[in-house]
Simulated assay, not measured.
Amino acid sequence: MKQTIPGLLLLLAIMLVPSSAFANNDTNTETDTSAAMPDYTYYTLAPDITTNYVTQGKRLGYLRLQVDLMLLDPSMSKLVEHHAPLIRDAIITVIGQQPEARVQSLAGREEIRQACLAKVNELLIAETNQKLVTELLFTKYLFQ
């Protein structure tokens, strides 16, 4: 009986010690990781872009897509909003030059997305002297 009482007292003492005593109280690691992580934001071009693409034959090909732009800093969204017509025109121009096979394939869609991102960044750097768009995403992609 003498053996179980000290064991119980030890268990009770461990349970009463706050868990923060065992935790790592180094708060600098939490602030360092949050400061190192960028604060991304997304800007959706509205309304959706509807345009034609090159097809073989007499019929027209239509493409409707929704474009989201990933920005490194939320403060850049005002600049992107100001340049939204330029961005839309650049995307429509790139898509208008694409053949039907590229528009309708998954690999071609990725090539178009990369070309749109490059063209948008090229124009925005010329206008604002900074790279505003980190990533360009097609969140809706419908073709006919």
Score class of each variant (00 low, 15 high):
D32Y: 03
E111S: 11
L106Y: 15
Q66S: 15
L132E: 02
A126S: 14
R113N: 09
S20Q: 08
G96K: 05
K119E: 15
N25R: 06
P74H: 04
L8I: 14
L72H: 03
R88M: 12
A36M: 06
Q56M: 03
L136T: 01
L65W: 04
G108E: 07
C116E: 07
F22K: 05
T134F: 08
K119N: 02
K2A: 13
Y141V: 09
P74I: 08
L117N: 04
D32I: 05
S34T: 10
H82W: 07
L10I: 09
L12M: 07
E122L: 06
P6Y: 14
N28W: 04
S34P: 00
E30C: 00
A21C: 06
A36Q: 04
A84I: 10
D39F: 01
S75T: 12
V120F: 02
K119S: 10
I92W: 03
H83F: 11
E111A: 12
A107P: 01
K131G: 04
L45M: 14
A101M: 04
P18D: 03
E127W: 08
N25I: 02
I5Q: 08
Y53I: 03
L106F: 15
D48S: 09
I87Q: 05
Q144M: 09
L106M: 14
R109L: 13
M1N: 13
E122G: 00
L71D: 00
A84L: 08
P99D: 14
H82N: 12
